[in-house]
Design a binder for these strands. Structure first.
Lengths: 214, 214
DNA sequence: CGCTGGATTGAGTCCGGTCAAGCCTTGTGG
DNA sequence: CCACAAGGCTTGACCGGACTCAATCCAGCG
């Protein structure tokens, strides 16, 4: 991990990222490098600038649940109280803006910052609730289909790229890599999506994908 | 549903419930009565006074996911943004305090109220994240064991009562009633818990339950 | 005391997991 | 530029845990 003081460069889009730009450090994380750790004290907040991040939770016997994936513009690390309930790792080489919670809290009263944090937390809760439904009540095929749809909607281009590997998808969806792989093959066989390598795809029949995702 | 203006009686424990006591209406809901509905506009917040509440989410083909259960003292209905993503129903005859969000927002600036709402949201997120792990990575037996443990910890007496039926448990855990029932029988056979009727149990071997819940 | 709806139990099936082999992709070094 | 190695992905065969369907049991209640 390397770090450097944030220059006062004007990159910020929202009020929050401006504040973080001002108060925070820029930190680079290599692929798979740990950003913070489950059960560790949570006194930092992170803003993804480039790259991507996953949060994970381990069971004692090694089973893993991926909580969420974060992209540029997303806030990581406010999902919890005093202690992180998830670990976070970089999916690929990533640049994050890091700021102390206490420093951020000093800006409480700054209406815009408060609201931005509140909004981020609300979105986090909503995404987690959506995730619940997928894990609890969808079949393997529906899980994979909804996952691809989420990605496609988020990126919103023709070619969608998968920043994560099959194991991360599997652990996000509560499946095994083998099942994920089979479902992807199946979706491709049905001409719903088309893969170009295993990290890029495009949606061929949007309606079919939507239907399969339920 | 019947309703009555809240008397200014001093029941409130926290600042929030005092404010809700002052601003809100008392409403009675019968067992299984709908409190609010999925996709409906969310302009009310609810505080459980007595009874219990479940939140649910339906898939188009009728599959159901229970999001959470709420007990006296819990806030229901701030899980979301403008639109409810879950429905809420009374598990049994229940008394709730209801207040308009806008009215509550008028108390923004009242530090204590703000913080209470923030705290409730944070707890909600934490519980949902815990739920994720259960749904994604635990076996049927582990799911049921963790559920019983949660209940037992929450109530914290000798005899624990189950305010919900088997179907609600199943839909909370992503299982079928048959599987839930089998696991309960199994746990009882292993002398981990003991049921007195199907709505009351007590933990006989706490360590075993903890181990089974992972 | 019987009725009714929820809970339990059983038999059989199937979806997704496990284990193992083989295939790409990607990166490295000759 | 190619050869090769290594890790990740795919595919196949088989297995088992959870689901389905159906019968029965039981608790709560009129």
């Amino acid at each position: 991990m390397t770090l450097a003081y944030a220059p006062s460069a004007p990159v910020g889009i929202t009020a929050l990222s401006e504040v973080m730009e001002r108060l925070g450090l820029r930190m680079n994380f290599a692929k798979d490098e740990e950003i913070f750790c489950q059960d560790e004290e949570a006194d930092l907040t992170y803003l993804v600038v480039s790259g991507a991040v996953r949060t994970t939770r381990l069971l004692s016997d090694g089973r893993r649940q991926v909580g969420s994936f974060y992209y540029p513009g997303d806030l990581v690390g406010l999902e919890t109280g005093e202690i992180h309930r998830f670990s976070a790792e970089a999916l690929s080489d990533s640049l994050l803006l890091v700021v102390k919670r206490s420093a951020l809290k000093a800006f409480a009263g700054d209406e815009a910052v408060d609201r931005a944090i509140w909004e981020a937390t609300r979105r986090e809760l909503e995404r987690t609730q959506e995730h619940l439904l997928v894990l609890g009540r969808k079949t393997a095929c529906e899980k994979v289909a909804s996952f691809l749809m989420d990605l496609a909607e988020r990126e919103g281009g023709e070619q969608i790229s998968l920043p994560m590997g099959r194991q991360d998808m599997a652990d996000y969806l509560g499946l095994t890599i083998e099942t994920v792989s089979r479902m992807l093959t199946q979706l491709q066989g049905a001409s719903v999506v088309e893969f170009d390598g295993c990290r890029r795809f495009r949606v061929k029949r949007w309606d079919a994908l939507e239907r399969l995702a339920e």
